[in-house]
């Protein structure tokens, strides 16, 4: 996908001429900037890149990228992107979706894209609210949330997007947030490098309808104490002094401990390449929501056969075995007679 012979690009090459129209202060701006700045580093070409989105605030994203793009219909971006990626494995296909688009109306397409492992990079902007329709609860909103459609508090139990993706056996699962450009870019770089479906949940602040939903963990002053960086091959620890850590208890649950209590040797060593998803799943369950210490980074990155490549291989094998199809042969294949 990387064409080393291509001339280098700059951010300017990746920004379209369209005026960006998110609400001032929206977390989407920082994600857009991070992506536009990242693309030149990935060594890819704008004409080989396609952003596909559904409906929602996040789904306006393709209009602002000077690539090929499609702003499609609510929830269907993973299905459309799957068709494109299967037809054109030479392209770099990205999906931009949100918690409503990807987990509610489009939940089915999301899990099936992940299980097939088609080579697309899915960015799910999670702001735990419906923004474009002006403030109803979303499938990631917390129980009890008071919104326009739930004046007495939401009764819906929320999805955990990472648990869901892992349940669908996604081969790449990660989480990042909109306030740390470096972490965001590093996570997206890893997602882009991954061969197969990559799922990245991005905590994104909606400053109009759900302001501060992630402040407890993502604001500069809280980050050290509440974000748990996952680093492959390293013991999982966090805190301003690295004084806290994660262990696996005898029930297979991940639990937070003081390193001083258990000793560094007892800490769980992160292994994103573990073939079975149980470790990643346990980590995805560590925090009940973005109000308690929460792991970020790559939860899982395993190799699994990529879908489009296999589709192409079947076509190539059929043509190698029997030669390219001949229409006149096909028409007579059911037996013929002469009159």
């Amino acid at each position: 996908m990387t064409d080393t012979a291509s001339p280098a690009t700059t951010r300017k090459d990746w920004a379209s001429d369209q005026e960006v129209r998110w609400c001032p202060g929206c977390g989407d701006y920082s994600i857009l900037t991070a992506v536009q700045l990242l693309m030149p580093d990935l060594g890819v070409r704008p004409e080989q890149t396609v952003f596909v989105s559904g409906i929602g605030c996040s789904s306006r994203f393709p209009y602002y990228m000077n690539t090929y793009g499609m702003h499609s219909i609510h929830g269907r971006a993973p299905a459309i992107a799957t068709g494109l990626a299967v037809a054109r494995p030479d392209l770099d296909v990205w999906v931009v979706t949100g918690d409503g688009d990807g987990l509610s109306i489009g939940g089915n397409h999301l899990i099936h894209a992940l299980r097939r492992n088609v080579d697309i990079t899915i960015l799910l902007f999670n702001n735990q609210i419906y923004g474009l329709t002006k403030g109803q609860f979303s499938p990631t909103s917390e129980v009890g949330k008071v919104t326009k459609s739930t004046p007495f508090g939401s009764l819906d139990h929320p999805f955990n997007p990472l648990s869901l993706a892992l349940g669908a056996e996604a081969s790449f699962v990660a989480r990042t947030h909109d306030l740390d450009r470096q972490h965001l870019q590093e996570t997206l770089r890893r997602a882009h490098e991954h061969r197969g479906a990559a799922f990245v949940e991005i905590y994104q602040n909606c400053n109009v309808f759900n302001d501060g939903a992630f402040d407890t963990i993502t604001s500069k002053q809280n980050r050290g104490a509440n974000l748990i960086p996952l680093v492959h091959g390293q013991p999982i620890r966090f805190g301003d002094e690295g004084e806290r850590g994660v262990v696996m208890d005898d029930q297979g649950r991940a639990a937070i401990v003081d390193v001083a209590d258990v000793g560094e040797g007892a800490l769980l060593v992160h292994d994103e390449e573990r073939p079975d998803p149980s470790l990643a799943f346990a980590l995805s369950r560590l925090a009940p929501g973005p109000t308690a210490p929460t792991p970020v980074g790559v939860f899982r990155a395993v190799e699994r056969a990529e879908y489009a490549e296999q589709v192409s291989a079947q076509l190539a094998a059929a043509q190698t075995d029997a030669g390219p199809g001949e229409l006149s042969q096909l028409l007579t294949s059911g037996g013929t007679w002469e009159v």
């Binding site: 269907r76 459309i80 299967v86 054109r88 089915n108 099936h112 076509l315 059929a318």
Partner: peptide
């Protein structure tokens, strides 16, 4: 059956994904 003709068939997760994938492929020039 006719992969020799370069035909890609995609059994989708539902009817909507079936047409969605076809639209994606059409955008890609198929």
């Amino acid at each position: 059956k006719h992969k020799r003709f370069g035909i890609r068939t995609f059994q989708a997760e539902d009817e909507i994904a079936g047409i969605g994938a076809a639209i994606g492929a059409a955008f890609g020039g198929h």
